[in-house]
Nucleic acid binder design. Structure first.
Lengths: 213, 213
DNA sequence: CTCCGCCTCCACCGATCGGTTGATCGCATG
DNA sequence: CATGCGATCAACCGATCGGTGGAGGCGGAG
C-alpha cells in the first residue's frame, strides 16, 4: 500500500463535513488534513496544506465552489479538485468543469464510488457521476437541443428582472436600454430554453439553476 | 448516565447517512439502530425497531419525509421525529410540523446543536432551528404579509401549468374549467404571493418551494 | 346555523406581450 | 481578415394577459 491520499474537505454543512471526515478516517488509504466551510477558507487551507485532493461542495455562502476552484488554479497550486455536490444541472456542472475540476460526483453516490472516486482523482484521472457524464456527452453530440444552450449573462440579467415582476418597459429602464432590446434578449432566452413565454422561461431557468441561488 | 438514545437515520444521501451515523456512534449517549434511504423504508424500520428518535430528511425519491411522518403518526408508533434537512421554506417547514414532527433542524447547524437537539427530541421537547422558529412566529403574528399566505392546491395546480408554458386558455382546457376561472385562480395566487404577473408568480413559487420538487 | 374560504363562472377593456424581420456595432476566435 | 456571436435598436400586428366587479354553490369551522 502506498502513502495515504491526503484530503481537504470543503462543505458548508457541518454534518456533511464530519460525515466525510469520519468516513475517510476509517480507511487507512486516506488522511483528512483539513476542513473548510466556504470557498475562501478552502483556498487558504489548500495553499497551506497542499492536499492531494480537495473534496469541494459548490453551493456555499460567500465564495462558492467554482470561484474557489478558479482561484486555486490561478495560484498554480498542484491540487486535484473533486466536486461533490447535490445538484447536477448544467449551470452547476459546466462552470465547475470549465474552472478546472478534476471530477464531479453527486452526494447520492454510494460510499464505495466515493472512495474509488477520490483515489482516482488523486491519480489525476477524470471522475464523473453517470448522470454528469451523460450530460456532458449530450452536450457534445447535440449542441443545440432545447435546454442545452446556456443564455448569456445579459440575458439572464434580463430574465432575472422579469422574474421579479418587471414589465419589459421597466426592465429596459433599469438596464438603460430600450424595450426592443429587452424583447430581443427574451426571445433569445426563449429559444435557448426551449420555451415560448416569460413564465415558462422563469420556470425553466429555475430548473436549470440559472436563477435565485 | 441514562440508557443511550436509540436513533433511526433517514436520508437519501449515503454520505450524510454515514456521516450522521459515525457522528452519533462516537458519542456513548446515542445508539444508531438503523438507517433508511427513503420514506417507505423509514416507516418499516421505525415500526420494527422502535427507536427513540427518527432523524428524517424531507426531500427524498419515492415516499418523501412528510408522507413518512404522516404514516408513522397514523400507525400510532410512539416515535419522536426530528426533521433534519437543508431547506427552510414555508412549503417544507409547515407541512412537516403539521404532520407531527417533534422538531426541525437544518443541516448547516453546528454539531453540538444537533446532538443537543436529538437529546431534547428524545425527551419529547420541541426543537427548532432559529430561522425555522422565526418563520413560525412571523406566521402567527402577521398572518397576511405578502408571501406568507399559501395558495390552495388548485391554485398551485394552475400555476404549475402556467410555469410549463401554457396560456390561460390551455390551462383551462387541461383542467376542464373555463378561462375565467383560471384567471381568478391566478389573481388569487398573485395576491397571496404578493406579485402582479405570472412570471413573478412562478419565481415566487419556486422560492417558496411550491413548484418543481 | 352561519360565516368563511375555495372553486366555479361571466363580460369588458386597456396594457402588455410575443412574433417577425431587419439592421448596426464590437469583440473574439479562427 | 473573416466569420460568428452578443448586445443594441426599430416598427407593426395579433394574441394574450391583468384589472375590475360581481355572483353562486359547497364544505368545514366556530
Amino acid at each position: 500500500m502506498n502513502r495515504p491520499v491526503s484530503l481537504l474537505i470543503v462543505d458548508d454543512h457541518p454534518v456533511v463535513r464530519d460525515g466525510l471526515s469520519s468516513m475517510f478516517a476509517n480507511d487507512s488509504g486516506f488522511e483528512v488534513v483539513g476542513q473548510a466551510a466556504d470557498g475562501a477558507e478552502a483556498v487558504r487551507q489548500a495553499v497551506a496544506l497542499r492536499p492531494d485532493v480537495v473534496l469541494m461542495d459548490l453551493r456555499m455562502p460567500g465564495t462558492d465552489g467554482v470561484a474557489a476552484i478558479t482561484e486555486l488554479v490561478r495560484t498554480g497550486v498542484p491540487v486535484r479538485v473533486l466536486v461533490l455536490t447535490t445538484y447536477d444541472t448544467d449551470a452547476d456542472v459546466l462552470p465547475a468543469i470549465d474552472a478546472g475540476a478534476t471530477g464531479y460526483l453527486l452526494k447520492d453516490a454510494p460510499r464505495e464510488e466515493l472512495l474509488r472516486g477520490v483515489r482516482a482523482a488523486a491519480e489525476g484521472e477524470a471522475v464523473l457521476s453517470p448522470t454528469v457524464a451523460a450530460r456532458l456527452m449530450r452536450r457534445v453530440r447535440e449542441p443545440e437541443v432545447p435546454g442545452n444552450e446556456v443564455p448569456s449573462q445579459r440575458e439572464v440579467e434580463v430574465l432575472n428582472l422579469v422574474a421579479q415582476g418587471n414589465t419589459n418597459r421597466e426592465v429596459a429602464a433599469r438596464l438603460f436600454i430600450t424595450e426592443a432590446t429587452v424583447k430581443t434578449h427574451l426571445l433569445n432566452v426563449y429559444s435557448k430554453l426551449g420555451v415560448s413565454d416569460r413564465a415558462a422561461a422563469v420556470a425553466a431557468a429555475y430548473n436549470a439553476g440559472l436563477l435565485s441561488t
